[in-house]
Design a protein around this nucleic acid. Structure first.
Length: 444
RNA sequence: GCCGGUAUCGUCUAGGGGUCAGGACGGGUGGUUCUCAGCCAUCAAACCGGGGUUCGAAUCCCCGUACCGGUACCA
């Protein structure tokens, strides 16, 4: 029997990174063993569920590259995959149990009669786990409004859909005996269970909005690459048993085991995600990088078709300058600014530190004139000219460099000044130096 | 409170009766240098505590402690 796994989100919010990781583990296991990955929408809580949320979840999964074999949009032999469309099925199941004397009516609701004894199961992550049934109350399976509770719908669906492995969050571990009891009551064999540790914030509290972004698509917005998030999430709470960390989707599939999942909760370390993202960004070839940047370039108003045509070589050089410093696609866009538009102001601290020396406007004009008269406009020549000029004027090269950087970018930090000058080009560079010189004179 | 789970550097983790307890992120220092980043070199940093078992325990057992989760006609 080939394994059948499922991810069963409740569409009461967007795809959370914790949910995404659960989906990821299920997907990894299914792909590793040639099984089936099912997506089932647990929308029995009609008030809190919406189509917008459903499509948000699908988008998040698709963006991460997690595809499903059965479920919304693709359907399958056990359709429908929305619990809201299976309500009658749950009612029948609850009445079945009632008829068999395994459940009882209570105030219009139906409760499962928990038998005496002990309920045990073997968790692939935690090992054997036992609960005394006396600690489990006769729990409701069908509400008085005839809607199923989570316990009922989950078990009925897992039976109907022939789910063989349930990989879910640790928070379900104490629900599991209830589910095991239900599987038995329905005459079914419970699936194998694997409860994965929860994702926490840096303060070891359950990850929530106050820790920062928790939605998968929020990371997309911030300029993270799906393959980076995928890799990072896969290794959160799971060890491959080796020192390798940069692992492709396929490598992750090949190495995935339930036993490698660790028992304790895992802190979501944004810094590590940044590192992964940077690594993946660095591995993108030029055209791929440009393609990934495209939408954002358009939004910023920087895009022109020549960037992938006549100006491609220039653009590739610019990107090369930014690669060591941009950790996200958004940072690329930020740092790309001086290559597309003139500075719209000057960093205040920079002005104080680097422009307050008297005569700076004059030095800047002198440099501007030198550059205007220079034969070529390449980094090495520009550097040589600047240093010579600084020396002739009794100025430290650094001082002139910093002032020129402010003129060119408006900022105190940027890639190497001379490389930037070369790529910004003579006309724009001279204009910006003029402008700062005028600005300084006007201010004085 | 009760039930369940977990415990290795700050973080993610490897390992697991005898190891210099390994890697990565982050951090420190030095170098490269016009700033930042990067890069190179280098350093610091952990087996929750207490009892056992054993020639030997971080590893096995017990007891604590801490943390997390559950304790709904939420999922």
């Amino acid at each position: 029997m080939t394994p059948r796994l499922r991810f069963a989100p409740s569409p009461t919010g967007y795809l959370h990174v914790g949910g995404a990781r659960t989906a990821l583990f299920n997907w990894l296991y299914a792909r590793r063993h040639g099984g089936t990955f099912i997506l089932r929408i647990e929308d029995t809580d009609v008030q809190r569920s919406s189509w917008e949320m459903v499509s948000g979840i699908l988008d998040g999964l698709k963006w991460l590259g997690i595809d499903w074999d059965e479920g919304p949009e693709v359907n399958g032999p056990h359709a429908p995959y929305f619990q809201s469309e299976r309500l009658e099925r749950y009612r029948t199941a609850a009445r079945d149990l009632l008829a068999k004397g395994l459940a009882l009516e209570d105030d219009g609701a139906i409760r499962f009669k928990v038998p005496p004894g002990q309920t045990t199961f073997t968790d692939s992550v935690h090992g054997p786990i036992a609960f005394d049934n006396e600690h489990i109350e006769n729990f409701v399976i069908l509400r008085s409004d005839s809607h199923p509770t989570y316990h009922l719908s989950v078990v009925v669906d897992d039976i109907d859909m022939q789910v063989t492995h349930v990989i879910r969050g640790d928070d379900h571990i104490s629900n599991t005996p209830k589910h095991v009891l239900l599987f038995h009551a329905f005459g079914a064999t419970p699936p194998a269970f694997a409860h994965v540790p929860l994702i926490m914030g840096p303060d070891k509290k359950r990850l929530s909005k106050r820790h920062g972004a928790t939605s998968v698509m929020e990371y997309e917005k911030q300029g993270y690459l799906p393959e980076a998030l995928f890799n990072f999430l896969a290794l959160l709470g799971w060890g491959t048993g080796s020192d390798d960390e940069m692992l492709s989707r396929d490598e992750l599939v090949q190495r995935f085991t339930l036993e490698g999942i660790s028992g304790g909760n895992a802190v979501f370390n944004t810094g590590k995600l940044d590192w992964f993202n940077h690594q993946y960004l660095l591995r993108l070839d030029d055209d791929a990088l440009i393609a990934r940047l495209r939408t954002r370039l358009e939004a910023a108003g920087y895009w022109r078709d020549a960037l992938s045509g006549a100006d491609r070589d220039w653009f590739v050089k610019v990107l090369g300058l930014l690669k060591p410093r941009a950790k996200t696609l958004n940072e690329f866009i930020d740092q790309l600014t001086p290559f597309f538009v003139d500075p719209d102001g000057y960093d205040e601290e920079g002005v104080r530190k680097h422009l307050s020396a008297s005569g700076m406007a004059d030095h800047l004009r002198a440099l501007r004139d030198t550059y205007a008269a220079a034969d070529g406009f390449t980094a090495s020549g520009l550097e040589r000219d600047l240093r010579a000029l600084a020396e002739s004027r009794g100025l430290k090269a650094g001082a002139l460099i910093h002032a020129t950087r402010l003129a060119l970018t408006g900022c105190m930090v940027s890639p190497g000044l001379f490389e930037m000058l070369e790529l910004v080009g003579r006309d724009r560079a001279l204009a910006r130096m003029d402008r700062l010189a005028r600005h300084l004179t006007g201010a004085a």
